[in-house]
Design a protein around this nucleic acid. Sequence first.
DNA 1: ATCAGCTATTGAGACGTCTCAATATTGAAT
DNA 2: ATTCAATATTGAGACGTCTCAATAGCTGAT
Lengths: 383, 383
Amino acid sequence: MATLKDVAQRASVPMLTAFEALNNGHALDPEIRQRVLQTADQLNYSLKITQNDIADLAGVAKGTVSYALNNSSLIKPATRQKVLDAAQVLGYHLNITARNLRTNRAGVIGYSWHVADDPSRMNNLLDRFIYRVTAAAEKRNHHMLTFLQPQENADRVYENLISISRVDGFIISDVSYNDPRLARLSAMGAPFAAFGGMYLPAPDFAFADVDSKSGVKMVVNHLLDQGHERIGLLTRHPGMPFGDAREAGYHEAMSAVGIDVPKDWIAYTLNVLTDAAAAAQQLMSAKHPPTAILCTNDLMAFGAKSYLDGVGMRIPQDVALTGYDDDPTSEFLGITSVRQPIDEIAEMLFDILLGEINGEPCAERQVIFYPELVVRQSTEFPR
Amino acid sequence: MATLKDVAQRASVPMLTAFEALNNGHALDPEIRQRVLQTADQLNYSLKITQNDIADLAGVAKGTVSYALNNSSLIKPATRQKVLDAAQVLGYHLNITARNLRTNRAGVIGYSWHVADDPSRMNNLLDRFIYRVTAAAEKRNHHMLTFLQPQENADRVYENLISISRVDGFIISDVSYNDPRLARLSAMGAPFAAFGGMYLPAPDFAFADVDSKSGVKMVVNHLLDQGHERIGLLTRHPGMPFGDAREAGYHEAMSAVGIDVPKDWIAYTLNVLTDAAAAAQQLMSAKHPPTAILCTNDLMAFGAKSYLDGVGMRIPQDVALTGYDDDPTSEFLGITSVRQPIDEIAEMLFDILLGEINGEPCAERQVIFYPELVVRQSTEFPR
DNA sequence: ATCAGCTATTGAGACGTCTCAATATTGAAT
DNA sequence: ATTCAATATTGAGACGTCTCAATAGCTGAT
């Protein structure tokens, strides 16, 4: 294929002139411009600046250009500058696809933040999380590719993305017991790092997690401090690791102070407002109704509040209410909640993932963070 | 570089045997396996199946393999089958990076759904939208890359993604007047399609939009039907095209029935719950307070409801309330809203975008959809 | 049997980058 | 001046795919 230099020589003009002519060239002698355009046409050349062109212009080998652009310490400063200048003048941009082919890297990380058409998986926390992950990725010269996972055989989608080299690895969240994705990715040797995992039995993969159990204990203790003893729990149906851990934290904290929890102080719900409201109703019709409702995420607290508002029960005078995850709406509604250090988690997780990808796993590839209690008016009414 | 065939020949085994040995090979004669592994080691070969290997196994040229895999009609069915079988046996996966380099396509579309750290841009509608866009992309063998745009010089980020060939084009939303992204992308000849744009003066780019003006008119007329005359408007500060259009729709509908709108029937707010609540309060303290509050998105309606609940005003008995965008929470709270055909828009937009990318723009590259009124109890109390 | 006119397959090269091994240049020490 | 050891640069080739131009194979008509 013809190069810019070829065109320039054939048209008997300097390379830069040829470049100008092909680039926009309005400030150029029309005759010369015409000649260059014609020559390019003859040679079937279309302008696209590569490292080759930089090499031609700077008068060095193309290998040198690559080294210089990548700040290799091999290259003498003067040479590097010559190369950078030429690159600048020609408006060069790296072709990332070519680099990817050569280096066998995509520079892209996959994340599936939505399970197809399952509203109960909607989760503001994860929205904020993926936002932070994206920021972390971009800081490290990577990009995030988002994709959908079907309800069935989600692991196949992950497998495919890796095997076609679309992504170098994954950030995954919402890990379940016996998650087929974990099995598949491990079997393939595909790099990934999970948000969550400490509550799986013997996790052997890379993850960052927040100690939900101690988070819930903090909430229980706060309510106890306020003089509550009849504390109800509104939580998701058992079967997801972090949900179970939160429930376990509740039981442990209660039994630590010697409170027996009757069955009707616990209500299970989907992660959907209507269900949560119904569950709150159920809770309040217990034999000895709770004076405080501890919800294991904010959405449930919103559902509960909606029920309580509807029947005229005042928060916190009649019932105290707490959420979990510190959704911005919790602040607006004045609901006590638990904040997780999403930002740090995202950064850490990305570093862990890069370690996995580079085959040099971090020493600490399973990291646990601790949450923080945010007290608001929904619990500010001591008994 | 050595190929799988080379290894097989050197170790004097059939290709498939060599493959088995290198792949997992537990069902193989250990001695043979060892020999193959050793040979591979000598040749510095590591297993990675390419079209070349398929060609070797099927006994055809590598060009034939490429054609066959891409369902070219040039290839005889029998040959194609031979190729597919070989690909199957070897567990072949296309290397998408190599294809991209060769075809000069990324197969990736960029979308920035978050403006960095600006909570007032949080928007559930866009979350649902990007979900649908992703589905549309995957149906068409593309993927979505999500990235962050800074508050300043967002257009540079777009430019960069295109110029390094990371993406083929963009879906953009939240278009503003004199949006620098539009200017930049147009100047670069970068393909994009916008969600929104019909309310810009003389838009010359590809877009799909929903007629917000007529949506608001539907709401006003519905409220008029219910006997309301004092209808207040809660909307964002002027300056964004679709917000302004919604306000214009309100004015037109009101003046169409001869109602004079006093200034204090209109309150401007940020897209933030606390501000919306404050604005609702302001509205209700008008000289002749409205009997219905029309909000130009759902979040504002939630803020307004929160204020009304707090001061004990009943919905709809004391005040009617409407939202816009049909957030799932609106359904839960029973708030009348306006639904936009997000799904169809996403599909359409993607087709339009592909047209732009392929240099064969759709005949209809500016498409307008119409919204649908969803009546709920928040307006079901005729006067 | 030959040939024209198909259709099917082949083989080579290009996409733009990186990187290894080989060569050239430099500088310091003799 | 010469030599040796760094240091700097070069040049070629490979990554895996697609696609063009060239060749081979086939069919049916002469």
